[in-house]
């Protein structure tokens, strides 16, 4: 592998982002963070990450909007997206957009790493 896999974390919860960043960096991933969907979309375009972790309920642009914009961009479409949903959001309407997988918060660090590795392997082949 030429360089460290790059992961974009999009979540409005600063503390949670810090934990996720720490978890992923401990496994030698290059982590970029964004605190809302709009910022996330800009960073995704600029940095071309290998995987995106996406929160659904966020201010400015929520995860659904992000996924919609994201799927319209052919240069981004191939990047795997793992959507993180809170406990009760997921019981509402069915999600309108295709993402690689929906993960339910809270997520244990070990499980997070396992999921990230699984999708990177799938996408990177």
């Amino acid at each position: 592998m030429k360089q460290k896999p790059r992961i974009l974390v999009i979540d409005d919860d600063v503390d949670l982002v810090a934990v996720m960043k720490g978890t992923l960096e401990s496994k030698a991933y290059d982590v970029i963070v964004a605190y809302n969907g709009k910022e996330g979309l800009e960073k995704a375009k600029k940095e071309k990450p290998d995987l995106i972790l996406l929160d659904i309920m966020m201010p400015v642009m929520d995860g659904f909007n992000f996924a919609e914009q994201f799927s319209k961009d052919p240069s981004l479409k191939k990047i795997p997206v793992l959507a993180l949903t809170s406990f009760s959001d997921s019981l509402g309407q069915p999600f309108p957009f295709e993402v690689s997988e929906y993960l339910r918060k809270p997520l244990k660090p070990k499980d997070l790493i396992a999921k990230v590795e699984e999708h990177l392997k799938r996408g990177g082949s």
């Binding site: 919860d13 503390d15 949670l16 934990v19 996720m20 720490g22 978890t23 401990s26 309920m57 809170s86 406990f87 009760s88 959001d89 918060k105 809270p106 997520l107 244990k108 660090p109 070990k110």
Partner: peptide
């Protein structure tokens, strides 16, 4: 309400898991 009540709990949960998982 659901989001705001659960977010701090989810975050706290993550911190504890972070410690439990030996990070």
């Amino acid at each position: 309400v659901a989001h705001d009540l659960q977010s701090p709990l989810v975050a706290t949960q993550s911190f504890i898991s972070y410690i439990l998982d030996g990070f």
